[in-house]
Nucleic acid binder design. Structure first.
Lengths: 292, 292
DNA sequence: CGATTGTCTTTTATCGGCAATAGACAGTTC
DNA sequence: GAACTGTCTATTGCCGATAAAAGACAATCG
């Protein structure tokens, strides 16, 4: 096999979702734009829809014959891109499995285990190396530096520098900037989750990422914004991994966010710095607890 | 061809250099350690030395028959690793050639131009993307974001945050830390160059990198230290490219470094911050001038 | 017996090739 | 005539294969 057709399968599934609501399809370019794929892929989707008897398609006429059934969808395992699969496998290995710092990483072995070629694994490792968890010895193996206490401290040190600066920059955004609207939306979700915290505390992870990314974007600095990827991936897998006291921790973080948001809205630099520091401090403590 | 044997050729050349001085060769593992290659490569070198009649080699007996001649060396073009070649070609293209921001980067075209396979180019681009000068559209091309004024400002903003913090950390290094000795050595080279500035001002670039890296290392933070790669590559190519007033600029920077070094040695945080800020400010201005 | 060498296996770096996907252009439709 | 479709080409993403390089282990030497 050369390339997996995951783009097609994923777009096909999303197209079925669209059909569950509206029962009509727009033109090829329009559909491509709304699914985020090229016309080539759109045409592959339409062809497939015709094959499974969901659509009568001739030129501009697209007649939806029936509602999609769950059997029409491709299984979700087939819609993940190879790099997502590799990332997940790798993170599970190094976070869950006994991954001692200093361990060697073997490209070929990883590839065989995941069931993929070495090229993809190599490319993944190169991309992943910017997260500071692995390091390459040229012409030789990779070394796992490990998710250690030092790592967490170094990460949070930079995070705190960047976020304080970004939060300060946030205050200078003009009133009409879209970030204020997004901030309102984010705040509303906070209230929603807090109102039903018992059932919805797991939604915090995603919201957390959305909120902090918004703050970082105010820096208008690509290096600061890019660095947020490192934070996001670490916290993302951290949340999946460490579930002790999750409800309580998340509730506390939500409250801290609300104070932080209120401070941003007040445009008072002193209040913002204080609220930001308080939240970052407890985020750091949470992360450190999961390591020891 | 699968792999270029540049490791062998480069190590072979360095081995010849060793033979120009001492006329005796140590054991295979020892030679491997001093050249930084495996025994396999050492044995390939010894075999080659025998072939060209430079060495009589049997087991532990290695008799050097004659001094190396310049014809024995492999040409320098053949000793650069593929990734170095790709980096140079690419940087020349985007710095020298009219490289408009927003331009598309084509892997295949780049590979053909450099005379290499696409895999190596891809891997280079992935590694290079962390410098913030290019960006990938998945399943599609790379986009050149360009060496613009914004880029320089974003880069120097982060640099200033990181270096101020590193310089502050430097003050807390214990007296017996090796960094102080290295600082002395670096200072001495500064005086050497200043004493013969007319002829040696070009040596500044390398010294600059050595000095700032030393400072950054005091942060003991992998993200701060890794970020110095970005700064180093930008300034490295910047120096090669923009030669206007190079002598004068470098002389000024050398003086600023000396003040900065003296401040570090005084362990006075206020003085350090002042000297560091002054130098970073003029470094930023130099960089910005080359862009407009 | 510790270090060195001979031999062999494993792993990395790189290439060419192919299917998936993007994208260009001309002809067609409303 | 603007947007859409048919058709074709170009490019990316991925794989398997192969030479270079690393490295393991037993045999040998001093």
């Amino acid at each position: 096999m050369a390339k997996q057709n995951t783009v097609f399968k994923d777009a096909f599934n999303r197209c079925l979702k669209l059909l569950e609501q509206g029962s009509t399809l727009p033109s090829e370019p329009e559909l491509g734009a709304s699914l985020g794929v090229s016309r080539t892929t759109v045409r592959a989707i339409l062809t497939r829809l015709e094959e499974i008897g969901l659509l009568a398609w001739e030129k501009r006429q697209k007649i939806v014959l029936r509602k999609p059934a769950s059997a029409d969808y491709y299984p979700t395992e087939e819609t993940d891109s190879l790099s997502e699969i590799i990332e997940r496998s790798f993170m599970r290995r190094i976070l869950a499995g006994g991954a001692a710092p200093g361990m060697q990483i073997n490209e070929l072995e990883l590839a065989r285990e995941i069931g993929t070629g070495t090229t993809s694994v190599r490319e993944f490792l190169i991309r992943f190396s910017r997260f500071g968890l692995i390091e390459k010895r040229p012409n030789s193996h990779w070394i796992l530096k490990g998710f250690t206490r030092e790592f967490a401290l170094e990460l949070t040190e930079v995070r705190e520098m960047f976020e304080l600066r970004s939060a300060a920059a946030f205050l200078h955004l003009p009133d009409e900037h879209t970030a204020w609207g997004e901030l309102d939306a984010i705040e509303a979700v906070h209230h929603d989750i807090l109102a039903d915290i018992e059932n919805r505390y797991r939604d915090f992870s995603e919201l957390d990422e959305r909120f902090h990314l918004l703050v970082h974007k105010a820096s208008r600095n690509r290096f600061i914004i890019d660095f947020y990827d490192v934070i996001a991936i670490v916290f993302h897998y951290h949340y999946q991994w460490n579930k002790t006291n999750a409800r309580q921790r998340n509730a506390r973080a939500l409250e801290e966010h609300l104070a932080y948001i209120a401070a941003l809205r007040s445009r008072d630099p002193v209040r913002v710095e204080e609220a930001c520091r308080r939240h970052l401090k407890s985020a750091r403590e949470t992360l450190l607890q999961s390591i020891n």
